[in-house]
Amino acid sequence: MNELDFYTLYVVFYEMMGMLFWILIALVIFGIGGFILALTREGGLQSRRLILSEILGLLGGFMALFIMAKVTISGFSDAGGPVDWLLVGLIWGGGLVGVTILSYAIMGMLNILNDSQRQKA
């Protein structure tokens, strides 16, 4: 096999992260699933929760950069060209979007859970 394909990517990512790979995949599925569920059940975006999620997302972006710096024993201050700044943006953006969706999903699920418990009561 000499092509760059999804299976090869999986193999390399798994080699890189071990079980953390599947934990991250589970988080992505849970985050997106929970986000969609919250949207559907609540009939749209809850602006207050979204703002709080975005604030957490901002922190998530910086956390992603911090983790990347730790893992690569370097940091975004080593950026030397445009592609490096693009990478910094991608990492930060990935952290921002991921944490925003995940935190919105968690808060949404908690809200749904509370509602259903209140209805039962």
Binding site: M16, M68, I73, S74, D78, A79, G80, V83, D84
Partner: peptide, 10 residues
């Protein structure tokens, strides 16, 4: 570039 360093180390 940093991106090349990232590739090498990670």
């Amino acid at each position: 570039l940093w991106v090349t360093w990232v590739m090498k180390t990670m």
